[in-house]
């Protein structure tokens, strides 16, 4: 079924932006991570995510054909034009918060990429196949840490539980879809995110249990990232991330 390129491109931006924003968040740990080993691990995860975002942005630019390239999409869109999940724009906070955020997202991303490998958009299916391997490692790394933080010292447990309680209300948005997504899903390009929920549960529940953390009740869930309604954190992050291209347009290195 043919699809409006604008909807197709918007769908790709949604996928790209969550990875770009979380990738940038990981880069903020460079120079500040608790140990040199973990600093490299966080930077590796960030680079994986930014790599996924680049491939998706380049593809989105080609699909929309509006003359913008991947750099223009990353560095010259303003907050309300970003389509990322609100979960990933949350500030890094302490190490437990970063790990919980990563775990909750990667537990979604991994099965989501897996489903996208069957997309009728061959370019997207190819990106998904590469990204799935990376996401599988992100789940492993963040869950091993979460188990050790939750089942660690009194302080690490408190911080991990606190992060989980604070971030839980952002998890509902991952499984929502709107008209844009439905059109892309019907075209065989996209994946209905609600179908990922059972797989997410299957990853999250046992890890939280092993980490001796209490899974929060599903209460009110915040959303809006995918249509450009963001928390206050994204603008601050973008002002840092986009500074160079805003101040020196077209600058390269």
């Amino acid at each position: 079924m043919p699809i409006n390129p604008e909807l197709h491109s918007d769908y790709l931006l949604r996928l790209a932006d969550s990875n770009l924003v979380l990738g940038h968040r990981m880069s903020e740990w460079i120079g500040k991570a608790p140990t040199i080993e973990e600093e490299l691990a966080l930077a590796n995860i960030g680079l994986d995510l930014i790599g996924q975002a680049r491939a998706l942005l380049a593809h989105a630019a080609k699909v929309s054909g509006d003359g913008r390239d991947e750099d223009a999409l990353a560095f010259l869109r303003d907050t309300h034009q970003y389509r990322n999940l609100l979960l990933v724009e949350n500030k890094n906070g302490d190490f437990a918060n970063t790990i919980v955020r990563q775990f909750l997202y990667s537990a979604f991303a991994q099965p989501h990429w897996n489903a996208l490998t069957r997309s009728s958009d061959e370019e997207l299916a190819g990106i998904a196949a590469k990204a799935e391997k990376e996401a599988t490692y992100h789940v492993r790394h963040s869950s091993e840490w979460l188990i050790r933080l939750g089942d660690g010292t009194e302080e690490s447990h408190r911080r991990a539980q606190n992060a989980l309680d604070n971030l839980w209300m952002y998890t509902g948005e991952m499984f929502e879809s709107d008209d844009i997504e439905q059109a892309v899903i019907e075209a065989g390009i996209g994946v209905d995110p609600s179908t990922i929920k059972p797989q997410w549960d299957a990853i999250v529940e046992p890890v939280l249990k092993q980490a001796t953390l209490v899974q929060p009740e599903d209460g009110w869930m915040i959303s809006g990232g995918r249509v450009g309604r963001h928390t206050e954190h994204l603008g601050h992050m973008l002002s840092d991330m986009q500074f160079l291209q805003r101040a020196y347009p077209g600058q390269q290195w």
Partner: peptide, 19 residues
């Protein structure tokens, strides 16, 4: 490298030495 246990050591080795 330093690590809390065997599993984390293997992960860190992957992250630090196989980039």
């Amino acid at each position: 490298l330093h690590a809390a246990d065997d599993v984390m050591a293997l992960q860190s080795a992957r992250d630090v030495y196989t980039r």
